[in-house]
Design a protein around this nucleic acid. Sequence first.
DNA 1: CTGTTAGCGCATTCAA
DNA 2: TTGAATGCGCTAACAG
Lengths: 342, 342
Amino acid sequence: MKQPVTLKDVAREAGVSAQTVSRVVNHRPDVSPQTRARVEAAIAKLGYSPNVIARSLIKGHSNTLGVIGYGLGLFGPTRVLAGIERKANELGFSLLLCLLHEFKPDRMASIVAGLLSRRVDGIIWAVPGHIPSFEWLATELDRTAVPMVFHDKSPEPDQVVIALDSQLGAELATEHLLAQGYKRIGIVTGPPEWWAAKQREIGWRCSMQKAGVNCPALLKAEGDWSAASGETGFRSLIEQVPDLQAVFACNDQMALGALQAAAQLGLRVPDDLAVVGFDDIPEAAYFSPPLTTVQQSPDALGALAVERMVALIQCHRQGEDLTGDAVLIKPRLVVRSSTLSI
Amino acid sequence: MKQPVTLKDVAREAGVSAQTVSRVVNHRPDVSPQTRARVEAAIAKLGYSPNVIARSLIKGHSNTLGVIGYGLGLFGPTRVLAGIERKANELGFSLLLCLLHEFKPDRMASIVAGLLSRRVDGIIWAVPGHIPSFEWLATELDRTAVPMVFHDKSPEPDQVVIALDSQLGAELATEHLLAQGYKRIGIVTGPPEWWAAKQREIGWRCSMQKAGVNCPALLKAEGDWSAASGETGFRSLIEQVPDLQAVFACNDQMALGALQAAAQLGLRVPDDLAVVGFDDIPEAAYFSPPLTTVQQSPDALGALAVERMVALIQCHRQGEDLTGDAVLIKPRLVVRSSTLSI
DNA sequence: CTGTTAGCGCATTCAA
DNA sequence: TTGAATGCGCTAACAG
């Protein structure tokens, strides 16, 4: 139950003023070597560590970033968070973590309010863009006191957005299937409210049309990212299009569900059916068969978000209003045996 | 670039003193209804939100918990973190998140120092117990200023530990296999430095001995939790014991690797070989075949850790030193077809 | 080079 | 019921 040691305690111990101790702690040059040594000895003896809270109060900023994550169940968002933590730590920022378990406007508002009252220097939405929620957010949060960076949402003029180029990823996947000679390529999408899910569907559609293959509604089933939804989605697909040749599942979990359903229906992958996923989760290489999938680099994405955020904070402190901009990270395709029937 | 609104601004706007505003904000009874209304109007008009930083400085505590997580790659630790966030939020605590990417003593020390200087009210080690690191920790952190709660490590007299009963889980898995008539049951362990990994191995060994089956070193391979290590581990096992009947993989990813290796070797699961995992990750039900595994409730574990922490903090504030205690959460076995050859 | 004064935003004494 | 002083731990701006 020892009280924390304060500047004054150290000052008394070293026989100097509090200000001098402050100078030593902040590595100011204007302290004589002898004094510095005495103070440092006192610091070591008492085990003093500066109170960051008090420092924040004066400086008007906390070197803390608010991070809003989306649960911790999905691969992409979770790894983005890990990337954020790593880079923030590197740049000397602490992270105040809030998890958005569901897209509820009032929950979003209260999270932001809480973060603001804790005087974070910026807020990173490490939450995948959920179209209706973010539309609401845009009206509500119009001019907030602190800079914000968004993740995986539609680029808007006044926002800083770091996103994976999901459409490109879907195009890579679809074009790979087309190049292998598959024509009737179904899709199991994510929830349509998710920006990334929409982009992946658009990518599939574009590639199909570019190749002159038309894609009727029958070729599309809607999932919710879970393996279970991948299974049911695939089953409804194959029921509607019995001669389906390939499936593009919009994440690896759904691809796994599709693989299981295919096995149960006696379809051999890749001979009877090709399957592509999205994300490249670590397990994807160990599915049976190993899954061809689109690899993203969520860690890099998170790191980038922090870098932008720190730049925004600098500008904010100088009173400049930085214009928004969007960054799209390019994914790449990892080809494994789930699409190689040759 | 608007400056945040302060108590004084509200006081001026409402024509009262700052203290009165403070009373309203803190829901004190001793304010007349008219005054309260005027102040609340001013608060709403100016969009005031109290500065938690300043409040912490006075009160001497921050209503913030430091959480140290272990990367975000493993299922258990990640979900524990999610459980912690949920409960902390519910109890009005914010979370300062730090990720321990590797078990390095100096990194651990600097994380704790950083958290302490930010005046967290307590520290939760949401990090799986790594035996050498935590031994070091015990000597170093002997009497820290704030209470700590640990996760998945060996119970010690003076520590509060919330752990999954990994040994029991392993016993459930092994006994299930024994009950199915399997005798030569191999194990692919986790890294031996991990407490949980050790416990799982102990559980396997106990059950085997209890059943009168001896378990030579040949029946054991060491993995690192990854699917890749599950694959190589299983291969070395089957090489040493060609008539292996079953494998207990100490997590689901390694079980997945074993499943793939078995398939490549032409072994049918469960007819030629039974496989059990540990964790019950959401994908486990979609492996081929669906995986029998030990289900833990990491969310509940995290929630419990926060509850204990808050209790500790209360005691700490009253100057009492609470004695340590350990809680072991019981897992349960989920039986799927990877062990049902009948 | 070093110490003094002031105040960050708020809550806890008091007194009125 | 309200207001005035005081200080949490620290640093900026001075003065010496």
